[in-house]
Amino acid sequence: MSVAEFIGLVVLVAIPYGLIGLIWTLTHTSHLADMEGVDLVISFLGSVVCWPVLTFSDVCMT
């Protein structure tokens, strides 16, 4: 595979991953309620990136 094919593969995988993470984060915002400023931005972006782990921990805690 060439470098361009690897970049294309990363883009094709990253778009659905990011969209699912964004949807999951927007529907699970309770942990963001008391935050503001940089903490809110970092926590929001962390939730988008780490949604598989957060989904698993959300299921295990209920």
Score class of each variant (00 low, 15 high):
Phe56Tyr: 11
Gly8Gln: 06
Ser43Thr: 10
Asp58Ile: 05
Trp24Thr: 02
Ala14Lys: 04
His28Tyr: 05
Leu45Cys: 14
Val3Ile: 13
His28Phe: 05
Ala33Ser: 13
Val48Ile: 11
His31Ala: 08
Gly8Asp: 07
Met1Ile: 10
Thr27Cys: 08
Cys50Leu: 14
Leu22Lys: 04
Glu36Cys: 03
Thr62His: 12
Leu45Lys: 06
Val53Asp: 06
Asp34Val: 04
Val49Ser: 00
Asp39Asn: 07
Phe56Gln: 04
Met35Arg: 15
Asp34Arg: 01
Val13Phe: 09
Pro16Leu: 12
Glu5Ile: 15
Val11Gly: 09
Asp58Arg: 10
Met35Thr: 09
Leu12Met: 13
Glu5Trp: 15
Trp51Asp: 00
Val10Lys: 05
Leu19Pro: 03
Gly46Leu: 02
Thr25Lys: 00
His28Val: 02
Phe44Tyr: 12
Val49Ala: 08
Pro16Asp: 07
Ser30His: 10
Gly46Cys: 05
Met35Ser: 13
Thr29Ala: 04
Val49Leu: 06
His31Met: 07
Leu9Gly: 08
Ala4Leu: 14
Leu54Ser: 01
Gly8Pro: 03
Pro16Asn: 03
Ala14Leu: 14
Phe44Gln: 02
Leu32Arg: 02
Trp51Pro: 00
Trp24Tyr: 15
Leu32Ser: 01
Ser2Pro: 05
Ser47Ala: 14
Ile42Gln: 10
Ala33Gly: 09
Phe6Leu: 12
Leu45Gln: 04
Glu5Asn: 11
Ile15Tyr: 05
Val53Ala: 12
Ile7His: 12
Gly21Glu: 02
Thr29Asn: 10
Leu9Gln: 12
Leu9Val: 11
Glu36Trp: 03
Gly21Trp: 01
Gly37Trp: 02
Ala14Ser: 13
Trp24Leu: 03
Ser57Glu: 05
His28Lys: 06
Gly18Arg: 06
Thr62Arg: 14
Val13His: 03
Val13Ala: 13
Gly21Lys: 00
Leu40Asn: 01
Leu19Glu: 04
Val59Met: 12
Met1Leu: 10
Ile20Asp: 02
Thr29Cys: 06
Gly37His: 01
Ala33Val: 15
Ile42Glu: 09
Ile42Ser: 06
Met61Gln: 12
Val11Phe: 13
Val13Asp: 02
Ser57Ala: 13
Tyr17Pro: 01
Glu36Pro: 01
Ile42Trp: 11
Val41Thr: 12
Ser2His: 08
Ile15Cys: 07
Val38Met: 04
Val13Trp: 02
